[in-house]
Amino acid sequence: MHGLSITVTGHEQKAAWRDKILPPVEQIREDVWSIPVPFPNHPLRYTLSYLLIGRDEAVLVDPGWASDEGWRHLAAGLRRGNLGFTDLTGVVVTHQHADHLGLAARVREASRAWVALGEHETLHLPAVGDVAAWIAADRVRLALWGVPEERLDEITLGERWLSTQKALAAPDLRLAGGSLVPAGGLGLRVVATPGHTPGHVCLVDEAHGLIFSGDHVLPRISPNISLQIPGPANPLADYYQSLDLIGFDDEMEVCPAHEYRFSGMRRRVEALLEGNRARSAEVLRVLAGGAARSVWDIARSLSWSRGWDSLQGPPLRLALAETASHLVYLESQGLNVHIPVRDPLPAVAP
């Protein structure tokens, strides 16, 4: 985008990404290790977990998707740092998605370490006893967005998704923006970066010159910014503000949760801002055509990396929710988009 580019620092990771294989465990600083954990049956393929060793304490960032294979990879990575699970004192998870939080419960059980999430992160579980009503309400919202009747079963959140959510670890600690992770000798500063999720956090390690960016800033992919109902009123506006907070340094090395390490955070932030603004402009062009009557109509008229017809199941749902987030943002900028986005029914509490 107009010449803005990052500088790749994780060369082995990028080679592995190109070759579609798992990258190696890497020692990236004296007491910092990068540990890839498989994310099966997904285009991202793996989550990059990070082991940070402090003064008599050790913290794991984003332990990854819950599977026996992932557990073995995580254990092997800890051994490279001469540690086992019982040596861990804390687990910091940048956000609640299962490819980040999934193994946290098992790690906690094996280590007695605390698990921490951002202070505003939600786990998206419906209230006890309201599962059927919650699923029904989700179906109503998707119909409001114009999803054809024959596609509703495909993308409505159902029992399988709920069972995955129920297995996720509830946090022992909540981390506020501007606070330090409570682990001696680490000096990890928390930056609240809502957008991708309501309570996403990044971690800044000034001493080592590292930024652990979770999914907030990735080297190649633009993270999905979805409208969640119930959820934040304007997630794209939140994301823009969060990018301003984290885009302060081009020299520090960025340690993302996927793909590969890089430097040039400020440059990457500018590219992400430009990309999202271009998407909003594309939405406006579709609206100007006058034919769109729903979120579905707009989404199917937008450009998608693999084409609209390739989107099925969860990716299709994410595409619709991303489109809805742009509509909400544009409306917040004073534009009357004339597209129903908000559920007219009372929200079912998460």
Rank of each mutant, 00 (worst) to 15 (best):
S310Y: 12
S242D: 10
A15M: 06
R55T: 02
H124W: 07
L152W: 04
P194I: 00
S67R: 14
D138I: 01
Y46P: 03
E109K: 13
R189C: 00
L218H: 10
M252N: 12
G129Q: 06
I221Y: 11
H196Y: 09
L272M: 04
G177I: 06
T89D: 13
A271H: 01
A133M: 03
M252T: 15
G158V: 03
G214Q: 02
H97I: 05
Y240Q: 04
P43G: 12
W33P: 14
R80C: 06
G307Q: 04
P350A: 09
G177Q: 04
T197V: 03
H120A: 11
E30C: 11
K166C: 08
L144Y: 13
A319N: 08
D87Y: 01
R279E: 04
L162R: 00
L88V: 12
S280P: 08
V92W: 11
P24Y: 07
P350K: 07
I35C: 11
P63F: 06
V61N: 10
N82F: 15
D215L: 10
Q165E: 14
S280N: 04
V107I: 14
A105K: 11
W134A: 07
L144G: 12
L227N: 03
F85Q: 07
G70H: 04
E12W: 04
L273K: 15
D56N: 15
N336Q: 09
W145Y: 10
R151G: 02
L74Y: 15
R29L: 01
V59H: 11
G199H: 08
A127P: 01
L243C: 04
T47H: 12
E12K: 04
V59K: 06
R220W: 13
E109G: 11
M265H: 13
R317L: 15
I35M: 08
E282K: 03
A15K: 15
E149L: 10
I221Q: 07
R18Q: 15
Y240F: 15
A143M: 09
H2M: 13
V328M: 04
D130H: 04
W296A: 00
W308L: 01
V59P: 12
L245Q: 05
L210K: 00
G102Q: 06
G209R: 09
G64S: 09
Q333S: 07
P340R: 01
A278Y: 05
E251Q: 09
D87H: 02
T156I: 10
T47F: 14
N276K: 14
A113L: 08
T156V: 06
R55C: 05
P340W: 03
I135G: 03
I339T: 01
R108A: 14
L345Q: 15
E109H: 10
A167T: 15
L316M: 11
V140I: 02
Q312H: 15
G54V: 03
V59T: 11
G199T: 01
R279A: 09
H42S: 08
S49H: 01
E270G: 12
I298R: 00
V181C: 08
V328F: 05
Y329F: 14
H120C: 08
D31E: 08
P344H: 06
S263H: 08
G77C: 13
I155R: 02
S34C: 04
V147W: 05
G118T: 00
E30V: 07
Y329P: 05
R106G: 00
T164H: 12
G247R: 09
